[in-house]
Computed example of a mutant assay.
Amino acid sequence: MAELEVKGGKKGTPRIDLTPMVDLGFLLITFFMFTTTMSKPKAMEIQMPYKDDKLKDEDKNKIKNDEALTLLLSKDHRIYYYNGIGDDPTNPPKVEVTYFKDKDGIRDVLIQKKKTVQSLISQGVLGAKDKVIVLIKPDDNSTTGDLIDILDEMTINAIPVYAVVDITPVDKDFIKATEAVNPQ
């Protein structure tokens, strides 16, 4: 409370005791700390494949070459890509190289693949339920940042189905052959 000090009959200046105000401040801080909610960590949802040992190979879902795009992450932020899954060694796919850049980068490749799949669906080559499937295969010398960047590209471009899988020796040979033809 404010109190007046009077000395010698003169009016004194009021003096305010702020000690209870400190208590009030701590009470308010404590109240707000207990009533606020902390931001919850956001995690990426991962759908793991169902494993059934009794399932025959012909009964499993197989990726069609027309809907698949394979990305090979390599050194120096290079992305080698080809259409299809590249499972026929007698008929190797045409492997091309791109980077994470604004023009003619991986985003343009993904957009073009989505357009191609939509065109094949409208022509009746693919079914109505078919969609773009991207296989991401990071090489041993690719960086974690590249993997994160390519997963961000999947989200940005609304790619419905993608998988991070191990790179095969055949894919490594594709990279070496492409580097021999087109060194960068």
Results as ranks from 00 to 15, higher is better:
residue 10 K to S: 08
residue 10 K to Q: 06
residue 10 K to R: 08
residue 11 K to I: 04
residue 11 K to M: 15
residue 12 G to Y: 05
residue 14 P to Q: 05
residue 14 P to C: 06
residue 15 R to T: 14
residue 15 R to E: 09
residue 16 I to H: 14
residue 17 D to R: 12
residue 19 T to Q: 15
residue 19 T to D: 10
residue 21 M to Y: 15
residue 21 M to F: 15
residue 21 M to T: 12
residue 22 V to L: 15
residue 22 V to Y: 15
residue 22 V to I: 13
residue 23 D to W: 15
residue 23 D to N: 12
residue 23 D to E: 14
residue 23 D to Y: 15
residue 24 L to Y: 13
residue 25 G to A: 11
residue 28 L to N: 08
residue 30 T to Y: 10
residue 31 F to A: 13
residue 31 F to H: 05
residue 33 M to V: 06
residue 33 M to C: 05
residue 34 F to H: 10
residue 35 T to W: 01
residue 38 M to P: 12
residue 41 P to K: 01
residue 42 K to I: 14
residue 44 M to F: 06
residue 44 M to V: 14
residue 46 I to T: 11
residue 47 Q to F: 08
residue 48 M to F: 03
residue 48 M to H: 12
residue 49 P to Q: 09
residue 50 Y to L: 08
residue 50 Y to E: 08
residue 50 Y to H: 09
residue 52 D to P: 07
residue 52 D to G: 09
residue 54 K to I: 08
residue 55 L to E: 14
residue 55 L to G: 11
residue 56 K to C: 11
residue 56 K to H: 05
residue 58 E to N: 10
residue 58 E to A: 09
residue 58 E to K: 06
residue 60 K to F: 00
residue 60 K to V: 11
residue 61 N to L: 11
residue 61 N to W: 11
residue 65 N to L: 03
residue 66 D to F: 02
residue 66 D to A: 10
residue 67 E to Y: 11
residue 68 A to V: 02
residue 69 L to G: 07
residue 70 T to W: 03
residue 70 T to G: 09
residue 71 L to K: 13
residue 71 L to P: 03
residue 74 S to A: 07
residue 74 S to N: 12
residue 74 S to D: 08
residue 75 K to Y: 06
residue 75 K to S: 13
residue 77 H to V: 03
residue 78 R to F: 15
residue 78 R to Y: 12
residue 81 Y to I: 00
residue 82 Y to N: 00
residue 82 Y to C: 08
residue 84 G to H: 02
residue 85 I to A: 12
residue 85 I to Y: 02
residue 86 G to R: 01
residue 86 G to W: 01
residue 86 G to Q: 00
residue 89 P to C: 05
residue 90 T to Y: 07
residue 90 T to D: 07
residue 94 K to N: 10
residue 95 V to S: 00
residue 99 Y to I: 14
residue 99 Y to T: 08
residue 99 Y to M: 15
residue 100 F to L: 12
residue 100 F to M: 03
residue 101 K to H: 14
residue 102 D to A: 13
residue 102 D to W: 10
residue 103 K to L: 04
residue 104 D to L: 11
residue 105 G to N: 12
residue 105 G to C: 04
residue 106 I to E: 02
residue 107 R to H: 14
residue 108 D to P: 06
residue 110 L to W: 03
residue 111 I to A: 06
residue 111 I to L: 03
residue 111 I to Q: 12
residue 111 I to Y: 09
residue 112 Q to C: 09
residue 112 Q to M: 10
residue 112 Q to K: 15
residue 113 K to M: 13
residue 114 K to E: 04
residue 116 T to C: 07
residue 116 T to I: 05
residue 116 T to R: 10
residue 116 T to F: 09
residue 118 Q to S: 05
residue 119 S to G: 10
residue 119 S to T: 02
residue 119 S to D: 09
residue 120 L to V: 00
residue 120 L to M: 07
residue 121 I to C: 04
residue 121 I to R: 08
residue 121 I to D: 01
residue 123 Q to L: 08
residue 124 G to I: 01
residue 126 L to S: 00
residue 126 L to C: 01
residue 126 L to V: 01
residue 126 L to E: 01
residue 127 G to V: 07
residue 127 G to Y: 00
residue 128 A to L: 01
residue 128 A to I: 09
residue 130 D to P: 00
residue 131 K to E: 04
residue 132 V to W: 00
residue 133 I to H: 11
residue 133 I to W: 13
residue 133 I to C: 11
residue 134 V to S: 01
residue 134 V to A: 05
residue 135 L to A: 03
residue 136 I to A: 02
residue 136 I to V: 04
residue 137 K to C: 01
